[in-house]
Amino acid sequence: MISDRTDLLQGTLDMMILKSLALDQMHGLGISRRIEQLTKGTFQVKPGSLFPALHRMEEEGWLVSSWGESENNRRAKYYRLTRAGRRQLNSETQRWGRISLAIARALEAS
């Protein structure tokens, strides 16, 4: 398990959140579970970092939120990607691809 408080992964957390919302709107716990599922349990995002990230991203205009009903009739706040959020996800994905490729190459070289 990787600690979600690692500074290096600040940008990564944003990317994971954007990715988890790519298909459908979701509430906080849902996002957290979705990230766990996507990363096969490598990332466990705690509310202490999840909510600041969500609010920050909402202020950035990547997400919008609205109150709704959860699957078992609980009130929950749902987040959904905006167009800007989708663009951000694309550019983050590309950037990540480049970085991981570069790092992988660097590590392979002797």
């Binding site: 509430h27 906080g28 909510f51 078992n72 009130r75 706040k77």
Partner: peptide, 17 residues
């Protein structure tokens, strides 16, 4: 207040789980 509700609902949902 909104934030308070949100965090509480998270906790509730988690408890339900």
């Amino acid at each position: 207040r909104d934030l308070d509700d949100e965090v509480r609902s998270y906790s509730d949902l988690l408890a339900q789980e």
